[in-house]
Amino acid sequence: MRNRTLLPLLLGALAVLALVMFGGPGLLDQPSQTTTAGATTTAEATSRGTAPGPGSPSGPVAPAPAENPSGLAAIRESELPPEGRRVLALIRAGGPYQYSQDGQPFGNFERLLPRRDRGYYREYTVPTPGEPDRGARRIVAGSGGDKYYTEDHYESFTFIAEGS
């Protein structure tokens, strides 16, 4: 008899926990107001045509930008040099890359990026017009979606705020 009394209490507690964890009914109806660096609000996404419109619950939605875990200054994707934007598009597409070194692990020996396990970061060459070799510009991409730009061969980095 005691177990039958506890069952409704346990089910009620689980329901309350689910509401707390998942925001309750109507969560998906509320507009997003994300304010992290480089993030996009629902209004901004709609103005770019990347958010679902009314009556279109599964319309095209841009991938959520990675948060800036580094504390480094950010650069908007649109502020990257044209070659950097092209390399960023190639990274998203999985290649092909111009240089054989692209996609290789980046060691973060300078310790300017957040410390992560070996292999977390990969580096990609951003060609510099007029340079006879790979030049100094790179994009370093973390497996968590965070991406960084350096124009001085790892002496400094900026976080790339994608989609902006």
Results as ranks from 00 to 15, higher is better:
residue 20 V to P: 02
residue 103 G to A: 13
residue 145 G to E: 06
residue 65 P to C: 07
residue 3 N to L: 12
residue 98 Q to S: 08
residue 33 Q to H: 00
residue 87 V to L: 13
residue 92 R to M: 11
residue 95 G to T: 04
residue 121 Y to D: 10
residue 7 L to I: 04
residue 122 R to K: 15
residue 95 G to N: 09
residue 88 L to Q: 07
residue 18 A to F: 15
residue 28 L to F: 13
residue 34 T to D: 11
residue 51 A to K: 06
residue 113 L to R: 07
residue 68 N to Y: 13
residue 85 R to P: 01
residue 103 G to F: 12
residue 156 S to P: 01
residue 70 S to C: 04
residue 127 P to Q: 10
residue 57 P to F: 12
residue 7 L to K: 06
residue 98 Q to E: 13
residue 17 L to W: 15
residue 76 R to M: 12
residue 122 R to P: 05
residue 139 I to P: 03
residue 37 A to F: 04
residue 22 F to T: 12
residue 164 S to L: 06
residue 24 G to V: 15
residue 21 M to E: 07
residue 161 A to V: 02
residue 110 E to V: 03
residue 30 Q to I: 09
residue 51 A to G: 01
residue 156 S to A: 10
residue 85 R to Y: 09
residue 88 L to F: 08
residue 160 I to Q: 01
residue 72 L to W: 03
residue 59 G to N: 08
residue 50 T to Q: 14
residue 31 P to H: 15
residue 37 A to M: 11
residue 3 N to I: 02
residue 75 I to V: 15
residue 114 P to N: 09
residue 74 A to R: 07
residue 86 R to C: 01
residue 160 I to L: 02
residue 92 R to N: 06
residue 16 V to K: 13
residue 115 R to A: 15
residue 159 F to I: 09
residue 144 G to T: 10
residue 3 N to A: 10
residue 117 D to Y: 14
residue 128 T to H: 00
residue 90 L to I: 00
residue 103 G to M: 10
residue 148 Y to I: 05
residue 118 R to K: 14
residue 117 D to M: 07
residue 71 G to Y: 15
residue 30 Q to W: 08
residue 73 A to H: 04
residue 76 R to S: 13
residue 99 Y to V: 07
residue 161 A to L: 06
residue 155 E to D: 08
residue 13 A to Y: 08
residue 122 R to H: 15
residue 41 T to D: 05
residue 107 G to V: 05
residue 130 G to V: 06
residue 51 A to Q: 03
residue 67 E to W: 13
residue 149 Y to C: 04
residue 53 G to K: 15
residue 88 L to I: 11
residue 127 P to E: 09
residue 71 G to A: 10
residue 156 S to Q: 07
residue 130 G to I: 10
residue 26 G to M: 11
residue 4 R to M: 12
residue 109 F to I: 10
residue 78 S to L: 07
residue 82 P to E: 14
residue 106 F to C: 05
residue 108 N to K: 09
residue 45 A to N: 02
residue 128 T to G: 01
residue 159 F to T: 03
residue 93 A to Y: 11
residue 80 L to N: 10
residue 55 G to E: 06
residue 25 P to V: 11
residue 146 D to P: 00
residue 82 P to I: 13
residue 125 T to K: 06
residue 51 A to F: 10
residue 61 V to L: 10
residue 58 S to V: 02
residue 40 T to Y: 03
residue 2 R to L: 13
residue 24 G to N: 11
residue 54 P to N: 14
residue 31 P to S: 11
residue 114 P to E: 06
residue 58 S to F: 13
residue 46 T to R: 15
residue 44 E to L: 09
residue 135 G to Q: 00
residue 31 P to E: 13
residue 83 E to A: 02
residue 146 D to R: 13
residue 140 V to T: 13
residue 96 P to W: 15
residue 139 I to W: 05
residue 15 A to R: 13
residue 61 V to Q: 12
residue 41 T to L: 00
residue 123 E to S: 02
